[in-house]
Design a protein around this nucleic acid. Structure first.
Length: 824
RNA sequence: GGGCGGGUGGUGAAAUGGAAAACACGAUAGAUUUAAAAUCUAUUGGUCGCAAGGCCUUGAGGGUUCAAGUCCCUCCCUGCCCACCA
């Protein structure tokens, strides 16, 4: 497209500079009257932003500008989630230090925001990889540690034996290292955890407080935390004083437990197989199971594998001996890492029992057709009538669940408990590019937290990035060797760094008082501005980031650092932009760069199309053709405003409205209402924009009918309304047009239009008439017509007469002001 | 495997249980132009019909209702997320 429909290339830089000079987006946080904290999830600094990334910022910018026009004191800060694996990988590959590449990327991104016309209060910028920020990430770690909520235990990691390094899940491809294709092993390492499970009940319960969150996000969080009520049972190991603990939600099936299955990583494995025949072979088999990643093992399609330990436990209910197997489908991370296997009533146990020829005892019978263990083709998992269960026989399984639990608690075989699927948050990473964990290991004093006054523990800059090997921090002797803060003796620093999710779980607090260097944030100021009024980001963060942020907020609340216990009041999760049906990503080679598009059509066009593409909470397919459509629409608006401006002198008084003008007047006020409702009721930008398009079309219709209409006050009102309603979406061209029609100050300092109810109403309406639910005719009637009069009118209609001919009317349904349905 | 979404024209989509397909893209024809672009006008779910008009149509099949894209049940297809990517 060679021709410019409007001079966007001069308009856009002009207004971007204007907003900066006017400090339009700089907010005084001392002024809390009418505060509105509009927050977008801060991004990982990536070099090449595509239009899919743009959606998040464009939505956020439109919301911020709209709220500004509604008279709010809007805070929209931006920052960067700047630690992370990609920068470190790039350093290994290209030898560029992560800090340099990260800060470069940040610069590029800020230029892009600027070109989009996406504005922030940059005085509040927060960059998580800078010591001024991560000092306080470390401080939060220490606070958690002091409360016993940061602790160390062994956990399994993906380990590449060739590279001698820990692999992220995404670096594991087909159970092999992505770099050298060596099969990945599962290795247990000492790891740092945050005890988020301590907060599981509150995180679950308080979801009900999040009334302004999307239902689907709340459901995902509920399922993720996943509480289940059940009974924990102690099984005595035969010929030993040891017990194996199992948790079950189906204690009603206890009499049908015919074997026990434990995870290959279970701590009791070695005790159990001590002295077993063929122990070496057993160990080899168990190791083989351990070497398969947990994701793969939890797939139900994977063939069940197991080995018999040679030992038995006693079923406390039936007294039967149950052989103990080590099985690949049992995960140490879930429950106790051991299950009582009930083949008749659990499909996975059933598969395993079939394979290893273990007894299948029916204890819950199907009331519809009696079950036979020997002939079953699959497990029966529904409720039923108790069988083979001693004193509980004949009871409903539902009732037996409670009775058996009572019985077990009385006998001391086990106890009721609520377990959560949620596991503690593993926060240590064997990586360089993250906030160092502020811990020192001393030969005399043990694990010693770094005192607050010694923060931050600086990440050393001068390290070697070898293409393979351990975290560069281990080799940085100046960093590792230190003095014990307690006894002053020689000590070694922790070389693990923190998960970047720790950095991002509190950044929204830092924006309020970003410069403070004696505390992470000012509590009083934070309490005035939070919870965040509107949080906007991708649905891919629905679980982890949002859950971690809620956890950290609750913790900070408990130690008195903040006065609220939920950080985000309203949450909006936008869908992603796809191209050719799949998510835009560099690896798939289907990204669309905004730069060329902005060069050709301007930022306003790209913004308008991005908002018009579809409902913002849903995924949307990008089309370059659609961008042209948005461009042509803006050209159409520009020309309309030009016409109105040029005829501005001969404005006719409003008193003599023609019928067409009265129609346009109604349309103006309906549009104002529609756009306002769409923005207030869930950011329906797409339908808001289409209604503005209709208003523009009707304005042209008026000119088409009557050239003199250009000077009409109603048309002028229409043009002004279009400009102001479009302003949040296409800010540059709106400012320009606002100025062209003679307004003196920024459109974002003007107040949002208010619709006039009286101007909206029409005195006559068209009412559809259905016969047996099918549309057959329409009648025109006064708006306030009485039901009787309407009935008369409808029955006199020729089409109605034709369609009802000869049939008796059974029912006459009138939906006031909407529709009539006649049943014959 | 588990969890969460989605399925409506050639395309993106719209529709508090009340006129399915608004708005836009694309397409076709015409106007304008030396020509193109841009602009303007008309048509555009399928089907039968010269027309008037009829019949069909929201992944498939059932149900509730005067009325179902929307509510309920069964099934099919598809996208996304799953703890060391952020």
């Amino acid at each position: 497209m060679d021709e410019k429909l409007f001079p966007f290339d001069t308009i856009e830089p002009k207004w971007q500079a204007f907003w900066r000079a006017e400090k339009l987006f700089n907010v005084d946080t001392n002024n809390v009257a009418n505060k509105y904290y509009c927050l977008m999830m801060f991004p990982y600094p990536s070099a090449a932003l595509h239009v899919g990334h743009g959606r998040n910022y464009i939505i956020g910018d439109a919301v911020a500008r709209y709220k500004m026009m509604r008279g709010f004191n809007v805070l929209t800060p931006m920052g960067f989630d700047a630690f992370g694996l990609p920068a470190e990988n790039a350093a290994i590959k290209d030898g560029i230090h992560p800090e340099i590449s990260t800060l470069n990327n940040i610069r590029t991104m800020k230029e892009q925001f600027n070109r989009w016309g996406v504005e922030y209060d940059w005085d509040r910028e927060v960059i998580s990889c800078l010591p001024a920020y991560y000092k306080w990430t470390q401080w939060i770690f220490l606070k958690l540690h002091a409360k016993g909520l940061a602790y160390k235990k062994k956990a399994f990691v993906n380990w590449c034996p060739s590279c001698q390094t820990v692999l992220a899940n995404e670096q594991v491809v087909d159970n092999a290292c992505e770099r050298c294709s060596t099969p990945v092993q599962q290795k247990d390492l000492e790891q740092w955890f945050f005890k988020i499970t301590e907060y599981a009940d509150r995180l679950l319960k308080d979801i009900t407080k999040l009334t302004e969150w999307p239902e689907r996000v709340k459901t995902m969080q509920r399922n993720w935390i996943g509480s289940s009520c059940g009974v924990e049972i102690d099984f005595k190991v035969e010929g030993s004083d040891e017990f194996l603990k199992c948790f079950t939600t189906r204690v009603d099936t206890i009499y049908g437990a015919t074997f026990m299955a434990i995870a290959p990583e279970h701590l009791m494995v070695h005790t159990l197989i001590k002295g077993a025949k063929g122990k070496e072979q057993l160990l080899k088999e168990i190791q083989k199971m351990r070497d398969v990643s947990r994701i793969e093992r939890s797939d139900a399609k994977v063939e069940k594998e197991g080995v018999f330990t040679g030992r038995y436990v006693i079923n406390p209910a039936s007294g039967n001996r149950m052989p103990v197997y080590v099985a690949n489908y049992i995960l140490m991370e879930y429950g106790t890492g051991a299950i009582m296997a009930v083949p008749a009533h659990d499909q996975r146990d059933f598969d395993f029992a079939k394979k290893y020829d273990l007894p299948i005892t029916v204890v819950i019978d199907d009331p519809a057709s009696p079950l036979d263990g020997a002939r079953m083709k699959e497990a029966y998992t529904a409720e039923g009538i108790m069988a083979n269960s001693g004193q509980f026989n004949g009871m409903s399984s539902e009732k037996a669940m409670e009775k058996i639990a009572d019985y077990f608690e009385n006998k001391g075989f086990g106890k009721r408990m609520t377990r959560y699927r949620l596991r503690d948050w593993l926060i240590s990473r064997q990586r360089y590019w993250g906030a160092p964990i502020p811990i020192v290991y001393c030969g005399k004093c043990g694990t010693v937290p770094v005192p607050d006054k010694d923060l931050p523990v600086l990440l050393p800059g001068n390290v070697e990035f070898r293409p393979t090997g351990e975290s560069p921090l281990k080799a940085a002797k100046d960093f590792v060797n230190t003095k014990c803060p307690r006894c002053g003796g020689p000590a070694a620093r922790e070389t693990d760094t923190m998960d970047t999710f720790v950095d991002s779980s509190w950044y929204y607090l830092r924006y309020i008082t970003p410069g403070t260097n004696d505390k992470p944030f000012d509590t009083a100021a934070v309490n005035k501005w939070l919870p965040v009024d509107q949080y906007i980001g991708g649905v891919e963060h629905a679980i982890l980031h949002l859950l971690y942020s809620r956890f950290i907020t609750k913790f900070l609340h408990d130690i008195g650092s903040v006065g609220f216990d939920e950080p985000f009041k309203n949450l909006f999760t936008q869908g992603m932009i796809t191209k050719n049906g799949v998510k835009m990503s560099k690896s798939k080679g289907n990204t669309v760069s905004p730069d060329a598009l902005i060069g050709e059509y301007g930022a306003d066009t790209v913004r308008l199309y991005t908002l018009f593409i579809g409902p913002p909470e849903k995924d949307a397919e990008w089309s370059d053709r659609g961008v042209e459509g948005a461009f042509r629409f803006l050209g159409r608006v520009w020309r309309l405003v030009e016409k109105v401006r040029l005829s501005g002198m001969k404005t006719r008084p409003e008193a003599k409205l023609s019928q067409a003008e009265a129609g346009l007047k109604r349309k103006i006020h309906r549009t104002i209402k529609k756009v306002t409702d769409d923005l207030d009721g869930g950011f329906h930008f797409n339908t808001a924009i289409s209604s503005i398009m209709e208003l523009v079309n009707e304005s042209y219709d008026l000119i088409g009918k009557d050239e003199n209409a250009c000077g009409s006050a109603v048309l002028r009102e229409a043009a002004e309304s279009v400009i102001i309603l479009l302003a949040p979406f296409v800010p540059h061209i709106s400012e320009e047009m606002w100025q062209l029609i003679g307004k003196k100050s920024s459109i974002f300092r003007s107040s949002w239009p208010i619709f006039d109810k009286d101007a909206m109403v029409e005195d006559r309406i068209t009412i559809p008439v259905q016969i047996n639910g099918k549309l057959r005719s329409t009648v025109e009637a006064p708006l306030d017509i009485k039901e009787e009069a309407l009935k008369e009118l409808v029955l006199a209609d020729s089409k109605v007469i034709k369609w009802t001919a000869g049939n008796a009317i059974k029912k006459f349904i009138v939906v006031p002001k909407k529709l009539v349905n006649i049943v014959v």
